[in-house]
Amino acid sequence: MDWQALALSLRLAAITTAILLAVAIPLAALLVLGRSRWLAALEALTALPLVLPPTVLGFFLLVLLGPRTVVGRGITALLGHPLAFSFSGLVVGSMIYSLPFAVQPIVAGFSAVETSLVDAARLLGAGPVRIVYSLLVPLARRSLLTAIVLSFLHTVGEFGVVLMLGGDIPGATRTLSIVLYNQVENFDYASANRTAAMLLALSIVPLALIYAAGKSRGGRRA
């Protein structure tokens, strides 16, 4: 087992999930509480990574954010190196790639909160920030948990984006799914079996726990 790759995958997933959560809560609140007609377009945009092939994303990050564009040169100046072939590049890629897995459960959770509660809070003078953090977040905590677990696992299982802009550097961009791919390509099926079993266990255990938590409360309400 490649422990370095396992640690890297877990670190990538943890950092991505933490940043995503900070982005997804305000975004979901805007989508649920907002009134603008443009929100439908914004919601579509956040769902885009669900349907786009990860290779498209990898290509954009490699070429559009590469050192040959203005944006890319800015990033290179800021980080001291191009986004490609670096851990920070994988974090950016993973955030885009896993965005819908964070936003959609939270939107569902926030939408399930009774509108009369939100209206009452407004009448009592609560601002949007207060409504989100004192009302929506506590009431939708199970959706938040789902969002956390799904974005974490989706990032652990990420492959296409990493393959396109990773460069297979041990400790920086060689994640567990890349190790599995290498093992299969190098005809090392015994190791590939172990890596695949590890990825499977990493995914099934947390998922089973979430669904078990949902069942024990006797309902599917978010």
Binding site: L62, V63, G66, P67, R68, G72, P82, A84, F85, L163, L165, G167, D168, I169
Partner: peptide, 19 residues
Amino acid sequence: LVTAENIGQAAQFVDSGNA
């Protein structure tokens, strides 16, 4: 060293300016 999937990708890494 950055390792590409195949020789085509190795060329693309350097042609796109990333390497």
